[in-house]
Design a protein around this nucleic acid. Structure first.
Length: 283
DNA sequence: ATGTGTTCCTGTCCGC
DNA sequence: TGCGGACAGGAACACA
């Protein structure tokens, strides 16, 4: 499911419910997700105050008063849903337990945070807050695309010499952390760059043009609450709506929306992932 | 080192 | 309506 905008949307939805609150109860319904859950996870969460809820790439980090942080990845189908609390003007009652509710946290204000993940590609771990960035899942990540370290000098250097298509390069979390299949497709469309273009042969000017476009697409998507295709829900259960702004993703066979373009959106497979693009606009 | 294919898992959709 | 296959927003891992 989630790329950076969806994870950021989830973070913002959880924030007012969990930040500063104590985890009164932690229910862990199975021993593993993608990997084994940490030892004694329920005990290590219970009674801890959530000091902050951060995001790094597609990971959430809940900093706890114990000095540990709960690291969460939503994988492909993971959701974090809030209930039992006023959200805006509406009260979200606790829903009936659902299949694939793997972890349920009850806060001291009565709110409940339910981690549901049908495909179980998600992950959780507990890590010391100090030095959390050295966790094996985080240590090799590239810069945040919305951060200052991600600029055209960085991107040009990072793409240099790479013989992989630009589509695959931008999906590589070591190069830049947080883009996924949807947003890479949308970025390359807006940039007018063919997904087949070899990363290392992309002219510097064109590589530089990607930086503001990446920022723009991600910012717009966050503003829209992410993209909801199948699984993504905001923490309050509502759908994001950036999917209505897709220009190419999941639009195979539809006419290109660019003014004056008579092309048709195509779908190809690169490194095992679908790529959607307009062969007319993207060169 | 860098690139690609496979794999994990469940659910949904589409064609027959 | 059932069944089989393709496909799904990720990314670690094995191997060329």
């Amino acid at each position: 499911m989630p790329e950076l905008p969806e994870v950021e949307t989830v973070r913002r939805g959880l924030l007012p419910v969990v930040e500063g609150r104590v985890i009164a109860h932690a229910q862990v319904n199975r021993p593993d997700l993608r990997w084994p859950l940490p030892e004694r996870m329920a005990e290590r969460l219970t009674g801890q105050r959530v000091l902050a809820l951060r995001r790094r790439s597609k990971y959430l980090l809940a900093d706890l008063s114990s000095g540990e942080s709960l690291l969460v990845h939503l994988g492909m189908s993971g959701r974090m849903l809030v209930s039992g609390v006023m959200l805006g003007e509406f009260h979200h009652d606790h829903p009936a337990p659902q299949k694939h509710d793997h972890v349920v946290l009850t806060m001291d204000n009565g709110a409940r945070v339910t981690f549901n993940d049908a495909r179980r590609f998600g992950a959780m771990d507990l890590v010391e807050t100090a030095g959390a960035e050295t966790h094996p899942l985080l240590s090799a990540l590239g810069p945040e695309p919305l951060g200052n370290a991600f600029d055209d000098a960085y991107l040009t250097a990072a793409l240099k010499g790479r013989r992989t298509p630009i589509k695959s390069a931008l999906l590589d979390q070591h190069l830049v952390a947080g883009l996924g299949n949807i947003y890479v497709c949308e970025v390359l469309f807006r940039a007018g760059i063919s997904p087949r273009q070899l990363a290392g042969e992309l002219p510097a000017r064109r590589a530089a043009s990607l930086v503001p476009i990446i920022r723009e697409v991600l910012a717009e998507a966050i503003e829209a609450g992410g993209s909801s295709l199948r699984d993504h829900r905001q923490a309050n259960g509502e759908l994001g709506y950036f999917q209505h702004a897709f220009r190419v993703y999941d639009r195979e066979g539809q006419p290109c929306s660019a003014p004056g373009c008579t092309g048709t959106i195509a779908r190809i497979v690169q490194s095992g992932r679908s790529t959607f693009f307009c062969p007319g606009c993207q060169r």
